Structures are given as C-alpha cells and as structure tokens.
Computed example of a mutant assay.
Amino acid sequence: MGTTQLESVPEPKYWHLKTVLSDALDQDFAVGEILPNERELAARFGVARATLRQALEQLELEGRLQRRRGVGTTVAPPRVGVAVDSTQHGWPGEGSDGWEAVDASETVPAAAVLKLLGTAPDQPVHTVRRTRVTGGQAVAAELLYVPAASVPGLSAIDAPAGPARARAVLRELQRLTLDGQDRSVELGSARADDAKELDRLPGAPVLLVTTRYFTTEGTAAVSVATYRADTCRLTFGDSGVEITETRAAS
C-alpha cells in the first residue's frame, strides 16, 4: 500500500483513509492475508492511530475486514450471492441451499406469523431452526414455521428431537407440490437468541427476510430468516431482488 496526502481532503480523514485502504484490499491483498499492525499502517499513511482505527472499524462494519484475537486484522472472504427472486427457489432444504438444520420443536408462533400461516393459536406448528454458514461463520439464522397439517406423515417416533427432527420436517414438507412463494425484506433488530447465534449484540441491525410457501391448499410454511446487516447487501436486477452476503466481520 502506498502513502497518500490527507491534509487537503475536505471529508474526514478517516473516511478518505477508509477509501484508500479499501482500494488497497482489492489490489494488494489476498483473502485471509493479515494486514500490517496499526503502528506501521499509521506511519505509512501519516495519520494518528485513532484515525486509522476509525477507518478499520468502518471497513469491519462493511464486511471488508475480520478482526480475530490472537491473529490480527485479516482480509475477509469474498461475497456469496443469495437470490431472493421466487422463481429461483424451491422448498427449504432442497438440494444444497447453504442452510444447516439445528433443531425442531412444536411452538406457538407470534401473532404475526400465525396470521401469515392462517392458523389458530391452538393448532400445532413445527418450528425448525436453521443457520447459514459462510467461511465457517454463521451469517444468518432462520425460523421455519410448518403447521402440522402441512406434514401429516411426520412421525414423532422416527426423529423425536434435534437436527434429525428438523431434517424430518423438511423432508415431509418437500413431498408437497410447491405452487408459489412470496418474500419481503425489512430492517430489524437482532433478538437475544439470534444475536448469540450470529455473534452480534442484542439489538444489532439485521435484515429480516420473510418467505411464505404456497400449495394449492394455501400457505404451507413461513420462513423468517435473520441476516447480519454487516454481511449482506440488497441488489436489484432483472430477476428481482437479491441478497448478497458480504465478507463476514467477526
């Protein structure tokens, strides 16, 4: 990385430095490579270490860098695209969709989910928890709500709990004929359980992707996926909306 003159730049020094560092990450560093220490970088760019820290923190928030204890600051892995366009999706768990089954249990969903499902509070609903992992780090957590009526062949004996139970619910769901789906995306705050799973603080900004899956009989399942806002971006194209996971920041 070369030096640059920052004194005459009207914008904040750390912001301009962030831009210079971002260009250098693209040109001079490989994924996983460790950056020089703060003292060396500050001297190279002629800035105070406080200014450098601000720039590095911003790059971390944008998912360009990872900071790991005992390792240092490294260049984050490349982005992974996750399409939201309904024409490119099937049932959850079909093929290799990047999600890992964690657990399944019968719960009473929130009123908003019950409204999407069109079910009454006293009707049993299977709640499947899954995580999406990129580069060894969880970047999204999902709660998939499946009314018992959607999976009448599910046996509690075959897979009573845990990941096996979650996979059993997914298998039964995939026996249905998918008639369509719709999605919505909104900005939200991480709940305590999602924050812990995603290594964020409770209340941290997240993207909530809600998907309804339809059969000819009506809504068969509802998915609420929570993506770390610092590892995702929304892009718009001819195929619809796409979520692109950025480099995960630890």
Results as ranks from 00 to 15, higher is better:
Thr131Cys: 02
Asp122Val: 14
Asp103Ile: 06
Trp91Asn: 01
Gly93Val: 01
Ser86Asn: 09
Ala110Gln: 11
Asp85His: 08
Arg129Gly: 06
Val108Ala: 06
Pro77Met: 15
Gly70Leu: 04
Arg64Val: 05
Ala140His: 07
Val133Pro: 01
Arg79Lys: 08
Leu65His: 11
Val113Ile: 15
Val71Arg: 12
Leu65Arg: 09
Val139Ser: 08
Ala140Pro: 04
Gly98Gln: 03
Gly118Asn: 07
Thr74Ser: 13
Thr107Val: 15
Val84Tyr: 12
Val113Met: 08
His89Cys: 00
Thr74Tyr: 13
Gly98Ser: 04
Val82Asn: 03
Gly93Pro: 01
Glu106Lys: 09
Pro92Asn: 00
Glu94Gly: 09
Trp99Arg: 13
Ser105Arg: 13
Pro109Phe: 15
Gly98Tyr: 00
Val102His: 12
Val82Thr: 09
Val139Asp: 03
Gly118Lys: 11
Arg79Trp: 08
Asp85Gln: 10
Val102Tyr: 13
Val71Lys: 11
Gly98Asn: 01
Gly81His: 11
Gly98Ile: 00
Leu117Val: 06
Val125Phe: 05
Arg79Phe: 06
Arg129Tyr: 02
Thr74Cys: 10
Thr127Gly: 12
Trp91Ile: 02
Ser105Gly: 04
Gln137Tyr: 07
Thr134Gly: 04
Gly136Val: 00
Ala76Trp: 08
Lys115Met: 05
Gln66Val: 01
Val102Gly: 02
Thr107Asn: 04
Thr87His: 14
